[in-house]
């Protein structure tokens, strides 16, 4: 029995198909990154796994049970959206409240200590900084000693040190045998945490593979240079080394060569188009034609 099992799930909102016949299985102890642009269906998928919504078709199982049954959610932890904390309640009160739903919660003091929130226990959540709210949100997902944790954009908007501290907490939970399903639209975050990556866009699973394989597929580079005519050219290529070598060999005149990693949006574009092998001709952004 898997920690999370989604099979043949379709979910519509009116005319919009948020998830289209999606199947996904997460085993116990896995750390899976759900990667996709905004509106890809990530949050909808999490809301089905956490029992907030019902699928139109297909089956969702959490630890082998229907997540819409409150009893099956005793093994589940998840983060509220950062902006969603009840502003007038104190930090300690929110933790006590959420922890009170579970049979064996982490003592509030210990949890606040672990997340560096011990001094803020008496503050109203509305007065916390963005980073502090994020930490509290992740802390809330772990207060019930869950077996499965759903993290929706856990470190969005955090600075580097805040992000590192939260990543450590997530790794520590996973090292203790916990199952993690996290969403992000940052490749970096998924890269830092996940062992397995599921890429989703427009309600369809585009790829489901190990981190290395996925990174290879989305690891496109963007090459820019100014040609002899003075026109700025831009090319999205799978292998920038090869591309530059070609450029030099063919004796093409160029200056101001610039190479950078393709953004995730661009990489998704590739996956959506179903083209693994990218070359300059079919993704030439400026339509300047082939250089070779």
């Amino acid at each position: 029995m898997s920690a999370v099992e989604v099979s043949g799930v379709t979910r519509r909102f009116g005319d919009v198909v948020a998830l289209d016949d999606v199947s996904l299985e997460v085993g116990h102890g896995e750390l899976v990154g759900l990667l996709g642009p905004n509106g890809a269906g990530k949050s909808t998928l999490l809301s089905l796994v956490s029992g907030q919504r019902r699928p139109d078709a297909g089956v969702v199982r959490l630890n082998g049970h229907d997540p819409r049954d409150a009893r099956s959610r005793t093994v589940l932890g998840l983060t509220p959206q950062e902006t969603g904390l009840p502003a007038t309640l104190r930090v300690r009160e929110v933790v006590d409240f959420v922890g009170g739903h579970y049979p064996d919660p982490v003592p509030t003091g210990d949890l606040l200590e672990q997340f560096g929130l011990a001094d803020l226990g008496k503050r109203q959540t509305g007065s916390l900084s963005g980073g502090q709210k994020r930490r509290l949100a992740v802390a809330l997902s772990l207060v019930g000693r869950p077996r499965v944790v759903l993290l929706d954009e856990p470190t969005t908007g955090l600075d580097v040190s805040g992000r590192g501290a939260l990543w450590d907490a997530i790794r520590e939970y996973h090292a203790g045998g916990g199952t993690v399903l996290l969403t992000s639209h940052y490749l970096e975050e998924v890269q830092a945490l996940a062992e397995r990556v599921v890429v989703i866009d427009r309600g369809i699973v585009l790829a489901d593979d190990s981190l290395e394989t996925i990174l290879g597929r989305v690891g496109a580079r963007r090459v820019q240079f100014t040609d002899a005519a003075g026109t700025r050219q831009e090319h999205l290529v799978a292998d920038s080394d090869e591309f530059v070598r070609d450029l030099v060999h063919t004796g093409t005149e160029f200056r101001d060569l610039e190479i950078r990693g393709a953004s995730l949006e661009e990489a998704f574009g590739q996956l959506v188009d179903g083209t693994n092998e990218v070359d300059a001709t079919n993704v030439d952004a400026t339509n300047e034609g082939a250089v070779r």
Partner: peptide, 21 residues
């Protein structure tokens, strides 16, 4: 708390649905 399930430790993979408080 009047319910008895303990969430501590790592229950086996075939654990039944827990009990809410």
């Amino acid at each position: 708390a009047t319910t008895s399930t303990t969430g501590a430790g790592a229950p086996g993979p075939d654990a039944p649905a827990g009990q809410t408080q």
